[in-house]
Simulated scan of single mutants.
Amino acid sequence: MPTDKISPQARSEVMRRIRKRDTKPELALRRLVHGMGYRYRLYRKDLPGSPDLVFPGRRAMIFMHGCFWHQHPGCRLARQPKSRPDYWLAKLARNVERDAEVRAQLAALGWKVLVIWKCEITDPGLVGERVAAFLGS
């Protein structure tokens, strides 16, 4: 169904169903990391950005970013919205800006940060290599 033909009520319902936590890519990442033998904490609210996976003993964390919402550079999933571009482009730009601010805050606190993108989770081998290199196994 083309997005320009959807009613505001239907659009609101679609947007309401987008989850912040426990998304399919995030669950796949958790299964992968747990299967590699790493143990982690979820969503530490006392840290900037409420990271998805936190490894306290290693002072490291992993964020699982959606390619659209966080505008993955060069990714086909990070397309620009055609409807209401003035609203969406400002919103998405602010997300990218906030991500950079959070990474800077975490670095200042002595934390290492790894970002895994939604499109990358389709290659578990590559993600596993990145996680192992990041966590220093």
Rank of each mutant, 00 (worst) to 15 (best):
P124Y: 15
V127R: 03
M64F: 04
K24W: 13
R19W: 07
S7E: 01
K45E: 08
H72T: 02
A60P: 11
R19N: 02
L109F: 04
Y38I: 05
E129W: 11
L32K: 04
R41S: 12
R17F: 00
R31G: 04
L135K: 05
D52H: 09
F134W: 12
Q80Y: 10
E101A: 14
F55V: 06
G74Y: 12
W117C: 03
D86S: 13
V131I: 15
G49C: 06
L135E: 10
P124S: 08
W88Y: 05
S50H: 08
R19T: 06
R39H: 12
C119E: 08
G57M: 10
A78P: 00
L47C: 08
G35E: 01
D46W: 13
R103E: 14
L47I: 12
R103L: 09
M15P: 05
K112N: 13
Y43R: 13
W117M: 08
A100M: 12
A78W: 05
Q80E: 14
V96S: 08
V115G: 00
A90Y: 01
E101M: 03
R39Q: 12
R39A: 11
L32A: 10
N95G: 11
L27A: 01
P81H: 09
A100Q: 15
H72L: 03
E26Y: 09
L53R: 05
Y40Q: 02
R103Q: 14
I18N: 07
T3G: 03
D4G: 02
D99I: 09
T3D: 08
R39S: 11
R58P: 03
W117E: 09
K91H: 01
R17A: 14
A107L: 07
L29E: 02
E26K: 08
A78E: 02
S137R: 12
D22W: 13
A10V: 12
Q71E: 00
R41P: 03
L29C: 08
L89F: 05
S83P: 00
H34A: 03
K24Q: 14
F63V: 06
I6F: 01
G49E: 02
H34I: 06
L109I: 09
G57I: 02
A93T: 10
Q9V: 10
G110E: 07
L29K: 02
R76E: 08
D4K: 12
D86V: 13
R94H: 09
A93E: 14
P81C: 08
S7N: 02
L92N: 09
L106V: 10
H72G: 07
D4P: 00
R21L: 03
L27K: 10
Y38C: 04
W111D: 02
V131R: 03
G125Q: 11
S137N: 13
G57C: 09
T122D: 13
L47P: 05
R84C: 03
M15S: 07
L89V: 15
P8I: 04
F68N: 04
D86H: 15
L32S: 02
P85R: 15
G35I: 04
R84M: 06
R16Q: 15
E13Y: 04
R130G: 00
R103P: 00
L89G: 06
